[in-house]
Amino acid sequence: MELNNHQGWYGETFVAAIAAAAGFQVAVPYPDIGKDLILGRDHEDPELDVQIALQVKTRRVDQIETADAGLRITLSIDQFKRLRGRRQVPCYLVVVVVPADPAAYISVDVPALTLKHSAYWLSLENRSLPVQQGQKSVTVTVPRENLLTVDALHEFFHRACEEVPAP
């Protein structure tokens, strides 16, 4: 498999593994138009049956541009527009940092399967679109403190439930 496709597939699978550990359903939208994964849950209370969407980007460890406290990621203006603003289904940018060599993506041993490396998230909900004539891309910084974890995914759903309008 071509390296960039392999890397992207691994990144989405990495995030899906975290979602599985959190107990959420994972769906892959078809066609993929700016959202790579849709996470949901089947809750006994229909008002708590919400979804979130994730746009997954990957970067190899040796390609990361680091800002003071985060990862700098360049998005096309179209990608940025699909992620920003308040939406019925909240959307998050997720950046999965992967090893440079695909052979190092996982290690398998009897007590554990270890996925490498890490994932970070960013909400662009409150970001305004940069207004510069002819601008084709925008760079955002994903804070390193925004580690994507089971607890972080539960918090995304908690926030989404708070925003569901009452009937």
Rank of each mutant, 00 (worst) to 15 (best):
V108D: 09
E125G: 07
N146L: 01
G134K: 08
V150E: 03
A112H: 09
A160R: 00
T66F: 14
Q88G: 15
S118Q: 10
W9G: 06
T139I: 09
A104W: 06
Q7H: 11
D78I: 05
L113G: 04
Q25Y: 13
V28F: 15
F80P: 13
P90L: 13
G85V: 12
V108W: 03
H43A: 04
F24P: 05
D49S: 09
L83E: 11
A69D: 07
Y92I: 01
P46W: 02
S123N: 02
K136L: 09
T139D: 11
G8Y: 05
L48R: 12
L148E: 00
C161N: 06
P29C: 13
S118T: 04
I77N: 10
Q133K: 09
V61D: 12
I73A: 07
I38A: 06
E44W: 00
N5Q: 12
A22D: 09
E44N: 01
P143C: 02
D45Q: 09
P167K: 09
A19R: 03
H158G: 06
S118M: 03
R144A: 11
I73M: 12
D45K: 09
A119Y: 07
V98A: 05
G134Q: 10
R86H: 12
V94R: 01
E145G: 01
G8I: 00
P99T: 06
Q55G: 05
A119C: 10
D62K: 07
S107C: 03
Y120A: 08
E145C: 01
Q55Y: 11
L147I: 11
D36K: 08
S137P: 04
P167L: 10
E44A: 07
S107T: 14
L122F: 10
Q133R: 09
R60M: 07
E44L: 05
T13P: 03
E2V: 02
P102L: 08
L39H: 02
E65S: 15
W121P: 00
V164D: 02
N146Y: 05
S107Q: 13
R87F: 06
I106H: 07
V131G: 08
N146P: 02
I18C: 11
H117R: 14
R60A: 04
R72Q: 12
Y105R: 01
Q132H: 12
P29H: 14
L93H: 06
G85W: 03
P31A: 12
E155M: 06
G70V: 01
N146D: 08
L37A: 01
K81M: 10
Y10H: 06
